[in-house]
Simulated assay, not measured.
Amino acid sequence: MSGQPYWESPVEKQIREAQERGDFDNLPGAGKPLDLSDSGDPDWWVKRFAEREKLDLGAALPGAFALRKEAAGYPESLVDVRAEEQVREILQDYNKRVLADRLRPAIGNLPPALAKTIDVDEMVARWRPLRAQREQEQRLARQQREAAAAATAAAERQTSRSWWARLLGRG
């Protein structure tokens, strides 16, 4: 810069102005060493980004692996479904998607990854006790809410009676 005019790019200008305003002061992690514990992993930045942003990368899985992940959650993921017919429809739809995935052409030299179809009757049999347990939990929670509401209403009635009694000079 000795004697030659200094030209500042627009980016450099924005950085300099931000520094002058103090925009880079007191940032999280300032003055601390960088965490390079996973720097040997080529996908470290994707994993950190997903963790920081709390992203579910399950949607990024190839078809067969996404289907396998979905099947691994059965029947627990179906416990909120109330009707057995709906559970059967969901499971039959899953099996249709597995069969459709198998019709896709293989890419590359490796054999294609396949997801297994599931036995609908066996899965429904595993779903029934889970659903019964959930219904029992919901019934108990409803009874507790009703008892609490009844106790609150009784206390309010008692309070309102005593208020009226005090107003009329009887209490």
Rank of each mutant, 00 (worst) to 15 (best):
A132H: 07
R102E: 13
T117W: 04
N26L: 06
G171S: 15
Q136G: 10
R104D: 02
V46D: 13
Y94A: 11
W44I: 01
R139M: 13
D41F: 01
D56P: 08
P10N: 11
G22C: 09
L67C: 09
G58T: 01
A154W: 11
G63W: 03
W127T: 02
V87G: 00
Q138N: 12
R104K: 15
F65R: 12
L103H: 10
Q19P: 02
A71L: 10
G73Q: 15
N109P: 05
A154P: 09
N95E: 12
S2N: 13
K32Q: 14
P75L: 11
A155Q: 14
P105A: 10
Q136P: 00
Q4C: 06
L57T: 08
R170A: 12
A60E: 02
R131P: 00
A125L: 02
P28A: 03
E53G: 12
K69L: 07
A125Q: 06
A154Q: 15
A154V: 01
R52V: 00
R128H: 01
A154L: 10
G169A: 08
N95C: 09
P62E: 04
P62G: 03
I15G: 11
K32E: 14
D41H: 08
S77C: 13
N26A: 15
G169S: 04
I90L: 14
R166S: 08
L27C: 05
V81H: 09
V98K: 14
F24D: 11
A148V: 05
N109L: 01
D43V: 03
L34Y: 09
D56Q: 05
V124D: 13
Q92I: 01
L91T: 05
